[in-house]
Design a binder for these strands. Structure first.
Lengths: 167, 167
DNA sequence: TTGACATTGTTAGCTAGCTAACTATAATGA
DNA sequence: TCATTATAGTTAGCTAGCTAACAATGTCAA
């Protein structure tokens, strides 16, 4: 969504400016550019992962599992660390279990809980994709100097911290 | 997805670095920060629009329609300008039509085509939301100086232009 | 003119996000 | 102890993205 290829022309601008005098076209375009490039980069990552038969959500769950010392944790903790709802995590785990990349193990001490475990196949999948991923991230970020990258992150964090104006 | 609250600690970093020596943790974190803040800002916009009973995809269609001189265009053109597939546009228009914000009119000269028209209710909905939207965008972007904002956009465009490294 | 090709919009089926509601289980306090 | 409350995971139903396939319609060249 939010295609920036379709920039408004002078006629359109005057129409909107007349109806909505508070509009600051530069700021709006900058804001939309941030949104659009974020979503394009995310789509690019999706396409890259698709080449390995993975999807962004599922791939991220595998990484979170690999971070655990025993390659195991619970759906709730995964949901919290991934920043999604428990319901969404259920769906992600369904897909990963179907593909044999994780397994669900019941917890006998607390029968509400499940242990989610990274399988050998899951670890092997990460070993396929991660070296390629890291190389490409390096190549992508090399288009900015380290000072530029740092300023980019700082500016994004400034915007992020101002989210309250939208509430 | 892609929660950055859960930053890797030293133990995790060494585990990943050992297994994947190409990983440059600073670059990876910067990359993920761009993705995450983009998605957070998009979510923020969703929440804002929800207060007016709107959703981002549908709202954007209304704006594209308002840009047209006669408030009318076709689903294909909308899909192209919004940067989504025709199938996705069908779904967005279904929702908007159900709410009475747009109407579908058959084209008698080319019976494959539909004319999508912004209704009075659709224009009224935009008139409710847009002034508030523009004020909030202004407030958000005021957290950056105009020079900072310009550098931010330039850096994002640099990244965007390097997307090919992920193909 | 007609057969091949292109275009338009829709449908079906997938992923992935959400909230709300539900079941099962555990924990706690009167 | 037992009633209440809290927690874990799932399900249902919504939005919104995608691709692939399809029917209806136009277009165009042989």
């Amino acid at each position: 969504m939010l295609q920036l290829k379709d920039l408004p022309n002078a006629e359109i601008l005057s129409k909107f400016a007349e109806r909505y005098p508070d509009a600051d076209i530069h700021k709006v375009l900058q804001f939309l550019t941030v949104l659009r490039i974020g979503s394009d980069l995310s789509l690019m990552l999706d396409n890259f992962l698709a080449g390995y038969g993975l999807l962004q959500g599922r791939w991220w769950v595998l990484i979170l599992l690999m971070r655990e010392a025993d390659l195991t944790t619970t759906p709730s903790i995964l949901a919290s660390k991934a920043g999604v709802s428990r319901a969404t995590m259920t769906g992600l785990l369904d897909g990963l279990e179907r593909e044999g990349l994780v397994s669900r193990v019941t917890d006998k001490r607390d029968r509400r809980r499940l242990a989610i475990q990274l399988t050998t196949a899951g670890q092997a999948k990460l070993d396929q994709v991660m070296p390629d991923y890291y190389q490409r991230v390096n190549a992508l970020m090399d288009s900015l100097s380290s000072a530029e990258a740092e300023e980019l992150i700082q500016s994004l964090k400034s915007l992020h911290s101002q989210q309250t104006v939208f509430e």
